[in-house]
Amino acid sequence: MSVSADAGRHRIETLLATHEDQIFRRWLEIAGASSSGHVDRGNLNGQLRELYNALVRSFGDSGDPDGSSELRGLLAELSRNRARQGFTPTETATVVFGLKEAIYESVGDDGSSEALQGFLWFSRLVDDLGLFTMETYSATREKIILDQAEQLLELSTPVVKLWEGIVAVPLVGTLDSARTQVVMEKLLQTLVDTGSEHAVIDITGVPAVDTQVAQHLLKTVVAARLMGAECVISGIRPQIAHTIVTLGIEFGDIVTKATLADALAHALRESGVEIVRNRGSRVALRTVEE
């Protein structure tokens, strides 16, 4: 670093210390304006104050690793929180970049060439910090997306017990080959774990199936039979029935039912459970007194 650059840097450090009130107030204004409505002022004030102090401390000893890592730690936390709370990238980045504008006024007032030199150096520093903030921000976003994809797969593949010995998978949404395979393996494993001899695959919530998915459903039913269990497929939509017939997929002797309720009734009958409607007890009687 040349002598003048060093002097410039020193000048900025001094400005940050001596004009602290003015610079900080301006920074808070800029950052507050960019993310108005999202964040309460007091909260932002606290966050920026911490950042400001950490920034000043990071100058304390040139190349002090602790000071700079403290600053980066705070920035990472800020951008992680903002990513989670749904702030836009611009709102998040402006917090850091606003510092440039905030200090510019003080530099202008100072007017010395050292201050201008120092401003160049400071700009570069803030750019680095801004990039770091954005990287943390997008990494957090990516993590959120990944987590959600996983949660979605878990959410969308429940195997539920309908009755002793009867389990069901209500499938919802578009089925691709991979997801169908995962669900089907889970269903077969549940049959073993619970000793259930009847399974209902309900596809009421499935808008369409392709050949591969239809084949997977079919293979699952056959595999369940090999294991000693029976599968019923319920809730086939007209379009899906049409697809299956048009594709020439042989459903053979696989039992299909219109609704999950019909499928449950079928499975209950097969497992020897009789359902009797208790006459009278459910009828609401009302006598009108004249």
Binding site: V192, G195, K219, T220, A224, L226, G228
Partner: peptide, 29 residues
């Protein structure tokens, strides 16, 4: 009795239907 899911899936893919063989989930059944 006791055919594992992975084994059953593989048998189906292989094209083996075990016609005429009765199956059950476990020894008890």
């Amino acid at each position: 009795v006791g055919m594992r899911p992975a084994v059953a899936i593989t048998l189906v893919e292989l094209g083996l239907s075990l016609g005429g063989v009765r199956t059950a989930l476990n020894l008890e059944k």
